[in-house]
């Protein structure tokens, strides 16, 4: 082999190895971003949402402003609440089973950018505490891992929510149920496979299954067990 040929081979080998090292570093950085950085960003975003909610609840009146009378003189039914503003937080969820300090904001909508800042309320489902199925989705992994320990939920576990005026205590009714991504029946007002019969005040939690995959979804159903005004302090489910 000539001197020049050796130089060319050396240059090719060197460039190839440099590309490999660069690709490896890129992958390591991406893993760091996914496992660490999205969590840092999501935790600060969720803390910010909860702080904003608590500021709003402690300063302003939290009751919904009076609705203008409906045209035609008919009064709107009182049970029909105001729509939650899209992309904004309106409640805080506590699940003692997932940790004594586990508290996440619930935002309106389930778009990916909403789920980066907290749990997402399916906007077509019932409102908090109302007749129907209040359905919430959350990340299992990345973005703060809010539902990392979802499979540990058991019947009887409390899911406590507050909207600033009322504490709602839901109780889980089933072990986490695995289903397919297109099974939108699970967030129906009366989900067919939940074991609920007839209309009621239900709650559905959804996340991905398996932990790092997207082939299935994990579902938990709960029913409204009790409510109490925020003025009477935190419900007993949170202090035990």
């Amino acid at each position: 082999m000539t001197q020049r040929g050796g130089t060319t081979v050396r240059r090719i080998v060197r460039t190839l190895s440099e590309i490999c090292v660069t690709a490896g570093a890129l992958i390591v950085l991406f893993v760091v971003y996914l496992l660490f950085w999205t969590g840092v960003r999501a935790d600060s975003a969720m803390d910010g949402e909860i702080g904003r909610l608590q500021d709003r609840w402690s300063t302003g009146p939290v009751t919904a402003p009076a609705r203008p009378p409906a045209p035609g003189g008919r009064t709107a039914p009182a049970a029909r609440p105001r729509a939650y503003p899209p992309g904004a937080s309106f409640a805080v969820m506590y699940i003692p089973r997932l940790g004594a300090d586990w508290a996440k904001p619930v935002l309106e909508g389930t778009a990916p950018d909403v789920l980066k800042r907290g749990l997402g309320h399916y906007d077509r489902t019932a409102h908090l505490g109302q007749l129907g199925n209040f359905s919430v989705a959350g990340h299992r992994r990345t973005y703060g891992d809010p539902f990392k320990d979802f499979p540990r939920l058991r019947p009887g576990d409390a899911v406590v929510l507050t909207d600033g005026t009322t504490w709602f205590t839901y109780r889980i009714d089933n072990r986490p149920y695995t289903t397919l991504p297109g099974d939108i029946g699970v967030i129906d007002p009366v989900p067919p496979k939940s074991g609920f019969h007839g209309p009621g005040r239900y709650l559905t939690l959804t996340t991905c299954e398996p932990e790092w995959g997207h082939s299935h979804r994990l579902i938990a159903w709960a029913h409204l067990d009790s409510t109490q005004p925020a003025a009477r302090g935190r419900p007993s489910a949170l202090s035990s």
């Binding site: 890129l26 950085l29 991406f30 971003y33 996914l34 950085w37 999205t38 389930t110 990916p112 789920l115 997402g120 399916y122 077509r124 989705a137 959350g138 990340h139 299992r140 992994r141 990345t142 973005y143 539902f147 289903t179 991504p181 297109g182 099974d183 939108i184 699970v186 967030i187 959804t206 996340t207 991905c208 790092w212 995959g213 997207h214 979804r217 579902i219």
Partner: peptide, 29 residues
């Protein structure tokens, strides 16, 4: 640049965002 622009773009291509049961089916209901 990677953390600010490239990774946030690449991240939705991975499955970790699929936590809902109605993705792309909003028009159905």
């Amino acid at each position: 640049i990677l953390f600010q622009y490239v990774f946030p773009w690449a991240e939705p291509l991975l499955p970790f965002n699929d936590v809902t049961v109605d993705q792309g089916m909003a028009a159905v209901r």
